[in-house]
Each structure stands twice: as C-alpha cells, then as structure tokens.
Design a protein around this nucleic acid. Structure first.
Lengths: 154, 154
DNA sequence: TATAGAATTGACGTAAACGTAAAAGGTGCG
DNA sequence: CGCACCTTTTACGTTTACGTCAATTCTATA
C-alpha cells in the first residue's frame, strides 16, 4: 500500500491507499468531517445505509460514501427515519433516470412536510397553553399574600 | 356500600359508593372521560402521579384525582415529561401558599418554553430544507427526459 | 520494545410512555 | 347457572438511534 499524508487537518498516522484519484478516509476522519460519532457510522453501515470499502478490517470511505452520508444527514434533519432514507436510497440506479426513486422521495417528502406542519401546529398550541399557564402562575405568585382563593394543583 | 346510578352516560353495572357528596368513578369511566387508556391510568399511578382510593382492589377516582389527571394531561400537552409533572405536583401542600411549587412550575415552564421555541425553529428549518429539496426533485423529474446531468443520490 | 492512538466486533443499556398479552377474580343479568 | 363485562396484577415488548463499555488488534513513533 502507498503512503500518503492526509493533506488536510488530520494527524493521521496510518496508511491511506490512493488509487486512480480516489480519496479514501478512515472512520475517524469521516466522523470528524461530518460531525458524527464512529458509532453512528458503524450503525448506519449496519443498517445498510453505508457500504465503505475495506482494507482488511479497516473501513475506507470514498466520496460516494460521503455523498450518501450527506443525504442521510439531510434526511435526518428534515425528520425522515433511517428506514425511510434507506428505502429511498435503495432505489438508486446509476444506469437509469431514477424516476421511481425521485417519485418515492417526492411522495415521502410530501407526507413528511405534512407531518412537520402538523408538529409545528402542535408546538404552537403548546406554546400558547404554556404561556397561558405561566401567566396564571405569575398571577398566583403575585397574589400569594392574599387569602387562598386560587385553584392550584392537587 | 350504597348503590347509585352513574347519572351520566355510563352503562355502569357495579357499585359506586357515595359519601358526603364525593363522586367516585372506576377506572373505565375515568379513562373514557379523559380519553386515556386503562393502562395509562395504572401507569400514572405506578409512577406516583395518581393515588385513587380503593374498594378492595378496585380503584376509585375522586375529583381530586380528576384534577390531578387534568394537570398531568396539560403537562404532557405542553411537553413536560411525567417526571417533571411529578416533581411539580409533589410540592403541593394544601396547607400553605405553595410558593415553592409555583416557583418551580414557573422555572420549569420557562425552560420548557425555550425548548418549544427551539423546536419550532428546528421544524421551520426542516420545512425550509425539505421544501427546497422537493423543488429540486420536481425539477429533476421535469428534466428527466434530457441527458443525465443531475446530482442525485448515490 | 514500550506505549499511545486508531481501529475492530460484540453486546448490553438508554430514554418515554405506554401496548399487549396472560391468568384470574368479582358482578349483575337473563 | 353461565355468560358477558369490568377489573386486577405481573411482566415482557415496542420504538429509534445510537451510547457505552469490553476485549482485542494493528500500527507508527519515541
């Protein structure tokens, strides 16, 4: 195997194979780069979301894996479950128009958008109720010198 | 024990003790009245949030329990954990001004309000990102007749 | 060579709020 | 009397996305 310095900001001590312009990173660097833990990357792999190459037992991530990880993180950010993300990614076919994949993504996205809007409504509701309660409590605290006439908790 | 008809809309067949104007309901009616399951009521009791009387082994809920349940459900609605709710309710002292309880409630409420607002921000963010992605996907679907030049998932 | 730093696979733990049997007891009604 | 219905306790299962050891291995460097 060839020896190459990481190039960027990693104090990497091990070998990094370089073949035909491919950039391989190991799990540590990958984790730092995307702000996830090693456990997370292994977990995603275990769930079939990532498929890094191997050098013996050492995982080597390419830019393909990076692209996939970006998608996973985007999916998580917008509230998809890993299962959903996997379903969508599994439909990817490099030799086609991926119409099915795109349609599925769009379909799931519409549903997810609806869920998010519903959640937002619930949160707004909760904020309203909580604010109300807080006003009441504040009032009770203000009036706590007067004879007990409030209706607190039991 | 005295026999009294449920009075409202329950086809109750068992005894309901009535003492000094107290209204006792059993778990089934209680559950229906507040839209929770039996399991939930028992769970709340197990967690120390409710303390219904007993007629032998049968739980009998009074208006005190109803008041407490209302508070629990309100707490849940605004996003408090049952643990939080318990902490607040445990401070209730019928023979005092409950200043401490109110202060704790207010304190927790402020934090919870902050959490809710943060959540809402996250959701808004997610909605934005998701909408963006959807536009992109829609575009890709529109252009899927042209030569592949998009950057889909890997 | 000793040591520190990365990496590996297992595998159990966590959080929250119940769901879901399972097995059994009590009750009024027809 | 037997059925239907309500109730009880006990206790494991569910969900999701990892956290947290533990034991081991590999490698480069001082």
């Amino acid at each position: 195997m060839k020896l190459v310095s990481p190039g960027e900001a990693a104090a990497n001590t091990n070998d990094i194979p370089v073949e035909a312009g491919e950039e391989f990173v190991r799990i540590g660097e990958m984790a730092k780069k995307y702000g996830v833990t090693l456990r997370t990357l292994r977990f995603y792999e275990d769930k079939g979301l990532l498929n890094p190459h191997r050098d013996g037992s050492t995982r080597l991530y390419t830019r393909r894996d990076k692209a996939r990880l970006k998608l996973i993180l985007l999916g998580r950010k917008v509230g998809f479950s890993l299962r959903d993300v996997k379903q969508m990614m599994d439909l990817y076919d490099p030799s086609g128009t991926n119409t099915k994949q795109l349609r599925l993504a769009l379909d799931k996205s519409e549903k997810q958008l609806a869920r998010l809007q519903k959640q937002r409504a619930l949160i707004d509701d909760a904020i309203g109720e909580l604010s109300n309660s807080m006003s009441v409590v504040r009032q009770m605290l203000v009036e706590r010198a007067a004879p007990a006439q409030a209706s607190a908790a039991g």
